[in-house]
C-alpha cells in the first residue's frame, strides 16, 4: 500500500513539475529561447505571493489573482526591454543574459527576504484528505494536479485555437514573414513571455503552498521543469505533462527505496530517456 500511495503522490507532484515546465516549453516553442532564470522567476512569484498574503491577509489561492497579472507584466517588460535585444542566430547572448538575471534575482531575493525558509500557509486545505478507494489523498495535491491539467489544456487551446496562438505559431515558423502579415515580432515575443510568466506565477504559488522555499530554490525548479520538457518531448505540451508525471513518479519510487535517492532517481529517469529516446517520449506531432 505504501508503494501505491507514494506513486500516487508522485503522479500528483508531476502536475507541479509540468507547471514548472510549461512556461519553459512555451517560450522555447515560440522564440527558441531557453530562460536560465526560469526557476528563479518561479521563486520570485512565490515570494510575491508571500508578501501579498502576509500584507493583505489573503489566502494563497486568492493571491494568485494578483500574482498572475503581476508576473505577466514583469514577463512582458523583461522580454520587451531586455531579452528581445539578445535574440538572434547566436545562442550565447540570451543564455548568458538569463544566467546573469538568475544571479541577480537570487541575490536580490536574498537581500530582501533573507535565506530563511518560507512557506505559504494554505490553512485547512493543506491538511484535508479525501478517500479514493482504500487510499486517502490530500485535497491540496489533488487540486494542484487538476489546475495543472487545466493550465496545460488552456495553453493548448490558446496555441491552436486562438488568434494569439496563430500569431505565436506563425512567428515561430518564420518571424520575418510574420512581420509582413503585420505582426510585430517584439510584441508577439513579449506576449509569449507574459503568458509564460502567468503560468510561472501559478507554479510559484503552488510551490510555496507545497514546500518551504528559499531564494536559492530556483535552479532546482528550473532543472525539474527542464527534465519534464525533455522527457516529454520538445514542443508537445501534453508530453510535458507526461514528462512531469514520469519525473514525479521516478522521484517517488527513489524516495521509497531510500530517502536520499529521491532527486537522484528523477535525474536518472531523465538520463535514461535521453539515452534511449533523445527526442523525448512524445516528440511533437503536427496537430
Amino acid at each position: 500500500m505504501d508503494w501505491v500511495n507514494s506513486i500516487l503522490q508522485g503522479i500528483l507532484l508531476g502536475g507541479l513539475y509540468a507547471l514548472f515546465a510549461a512556461g519553459l516549453s512555451l517560450i522555447f516553442g515560440v522564440m527558441r529561447l531557453v530562460n536560465i532564470a526560469h526557476g528563479d522567476l518561479i521563486v520570485l512569484a512565490a515570494f510575491l505571493g508571500l508578501t501579498i498574503t502576509s500584507t493583505f491577509g489573503l489566502h494563497p489561492l486568492a493571491a494568485i489573482i494578483i500574482v498572475v497579472p503581476a508576473m505577466a507584466v514583469i514577463g512582458y517588460l523583461l522580454q520587451a526591454l531586455i531579452l528581445n535585444r539578445t535574440l538572434g542566430d547566436n545562442i550565447l547572448p540570451p543564455l548568458l543574459v538569463t544566467f546573469g538575471l538568475s544571479v541577480l534575482l537570487q541575490n536580490g531575493l536574498l537581500e530582501i527576504y533573507t535565506a530563511d525558509p518560507q512557506k505559504l500557509n494554505a490553512g485547512a486545505i493543506s491538511t484535508a484528505n479525501v478517500a479514493l478507494g482504500p487510499l486517502y489523498v490530500g485535497v491540496q495535491p489533488l487540486l494542484m494536479f487538476g489546475v495543472s491539467i487545466g493550465v496545460i489544456a488552456s495553453l493548448q487551446w490558446i496555441f491552436y485555437r486562438t488568434a494569439l496562438g496563430r500569431a505565436f505559431r506563425a512567428t515561430s515558423d518564420n518571424a520575418e514573414i510574420a512581420q509582413l502579415m503585420g505582426l510585430n515580432k517584439a510584441h508577439v515575443f513579449a506576449l509569449a513571455m507574459a503568458l509564460s510568466m502567468a503560468v510561472v506565477a501559478v507554479a510559484g504559488i503552488f510551490l510555496a503552498m507545497r514546500t518551504s522555499f528559499t531564494p536559492a530554490s530556483g535552479p532546482g525548479r528550473l532543472i525539474f521543469g527542464f527534465e519534464a520538457v525533455i522527457i516529454g518531448g520538445l514542443g508537445n505540451l501534453w508530453g510535458t505533462l507526461a514528462g512531469g508525471v514520469i519525473l514525479g513518479v521516478a522521484q517517488a519510487i527513489g524516495a521509497q527505496i531510500n530517502p536520499g535517492w529521491q532527486i537522484l532517481a528523477g535525474h536518472f529517469a531523465f538520463l535514461v530517456v535521453l539515452a534511449i529516446r533523445p527526442r523525448g517520449l512524445f516528440p511533437r506531432v503536427e496537430h
Partner: peptide, 22 residues
C-alpha cells in the same frame, strides 16, 4: 548530453553536475 542542442545542452550539463553532487 551531446544529444541536447544549444541552450538545452547548457541545462543538461547542469543536471550532470547536480547528479555528481548528489
Amino acid at each position: 548530453i551531446f544529444r541536447l542542442r544549444g541552450a538545452y545542452f547548457a541545462i543538461g550539463t547542469w543536471v550532470v553536475a547536480e547528479i555528481f553532487r548528489l
